[in-house]
Simulated assay, not measured.
Amino acid sequence: MKFKLKDKFVFLTVGILLILCSWLLKPTLSPTAPTASATYQYKSIHSPDGIGKFYQGREIAQVMGHTGASWLERPSREAEEQPSKIVNAIDLKPNDVVADIGAGTGYLSFRIAPLIPKGKVFAVDIQPEMLDIIKSLKKEKNISNVEPILATESNPNLPPESVDLAIMVDAYHEFEYPFEVMQGIIKALKPGGRVVLVEYRGENPFVMIKALHKMTQKQVKKEMQAVGLTWRETKNLLPQQHLMVFEKPQR
C-alpha cells in the first residue's frame, strides 16, 4: 500500500513539473510588440464607401481605381479645387526632392517638376495602370525629372532619407495601411523634411464629397501625431480642402 501511494505521488510530481515546463517554455509576445488588432479594427457592418477597416477611429475609404483617371485630369479641376495654389504654397526650392504619394495620373507631379529643375519628383502609386499613364505623359510633355515608382499597399518604396517633401492630395484617406505607409514615408524623409496633406474638409457638410473621402483637421493631426510627425501649420487657401503641413523632427 505504501508503494502504491509513493508511486502515485511520483506520477503527480512529474505531471506538475511537465505542466510547469510547458508553461515556462511557451513563446510569448513582447508587451511592446505591435499587433494587427492594436493598430486596426475590422467591422462586418460598415459604410458602402469603406473597406470595413478602421484606423484611429476612422473607416478607411475605398480606393479610386485607374478607371477614374479621367476625373483626375478633368478640365474643371483648376476652377473647382485650384491645385495651382497648392504648388505655389509648398515653398519649393530648385533642388528639392518631392514624393507625390498616390500620384494617380501625375497631375500634381507634372506641375511641381518645372519648379525643381535641379531636383526630382517621385510619382508614387500602387496601380501599374496609373504609372503607365505617367510614363506616357512624361514622354509627351518632355519632362525628365519625374520618376514613377510602384508602391505596395504598405510600402511607398522610397530610398531612405532622400525626400525633402512628401505630398498627398486627396489620397491618404484611401491608404489600406496608413500606419505602415507613413512609417515608410518618414524613413524616406530627410531630417526636418515636410509632409503635406491635402484633404477635403470633413468639418464642412456643404463640401459635396462622400464622408469617407473627407477628413477633419483633428483626425489628420491625430493620425500624424501617431507616427511622430509635428504639425506646423494649416493653410486655408483652397475652396474645399485643408492644406496641412507636418514636419519630421530633426536629429
Results as ranks from 00 to 15, higher is better:
residue 26 K to H: 12
residue 27 P to N: 07
residue 33 A to G: 02
residue 33 A to M: 14
residue 34 P to H: 05
residue 36 A to C: 05
residue 37 S to M: 06
residue 37 S to Q: 12
residue 38 A to K: 15
residue 40 Y to V: 03
residue 40 Y to T: 10
residue 41 Q to F: 06
residue 41 Q to D: 10
residue 41 Q to I: 02
residue 42 Y to M: 06
residue 42 Y to T: 09
residue 43 K to V: 09
residue 44 S to V: 04
residue 45 I to A: 15
residue 51 I to C: 03
residue 52 G to R: 06
residue 53 K to P: 09
residue 55 Y to M: 03
residue 56 Q to I: 08
residue 58 R to T: 11
residue 59 E to T: 11
residue 60 I to W: 01
residue 61 A to F: 13
residue 64 M to I: 08
residue 67 T to R: 13
residue 68 G to V: 05
residue 68 G to R: 07
residue 70 S to M: 14
residue 70 S to L: 13
residue 70 S to N: 13
residue 71 W to E: 13
residue 72 L to Q: 14
residue 72 L to S: 11
residue 73 E to F: 02
residue 75 P to M: 08
residue 79 A to W: 12
residue 82 Q to L: 12
residue 83 P to M: 11
residue 84 S to F: 00
residue 86 I to Y: 11
residue 87 V to N: 10
residue 90 I to W: 13
residue 90 I to M: 09
residue 90 I to G: 02
residue 91 D to N: 15
residue 94 P to Q: 13
residue 95 N to T: 08
residue 95 N to E: 12
residue 97 V to W: 08
residue 97 V to Y: 12
residue 97 V to F: 15
residue 100 D to L: 01
residue 104 G to E: 02
residue 106 G to R: 01
residue 109 S to H: 07
residue 109 S to P: 04
residue 109 S to T: 08
residue 112 I to N: 07
residue 114 P to D: 04
residue 116 I to P: 01
residue 117 P to L: 04
residue 119 G to N: 06
residue 120 K to F: 05
residue 121 V to A: 07
residue 122 F to D: 02
residue 125 D to R: 07
residue 125 D to I: 03
residue 127 Q to M: 08
residue 127 Q to R: 10
residue 128 P to W: 03
residue 128 P to V: 09
residue 131 L to T: 00
residue 131 L to D: 00
residue 132 D to V: 01
residue 133 I to A: 02
residue 134 I to M: 05
residue 134 I to L: 05
residue 135 K to L: 03
residue 140 E to N: 10
residue 140 E to F: 07
residue 142 N to L: 14
residue 144 S to P: 00
residue 144 S to E: 15
residue 149 I to M: 03
residue 149 I to C: 01
residue 152 T to R: 09
residue 154 S to W: 05
residue 156 P to R: 10
residue 156 P to L: 09
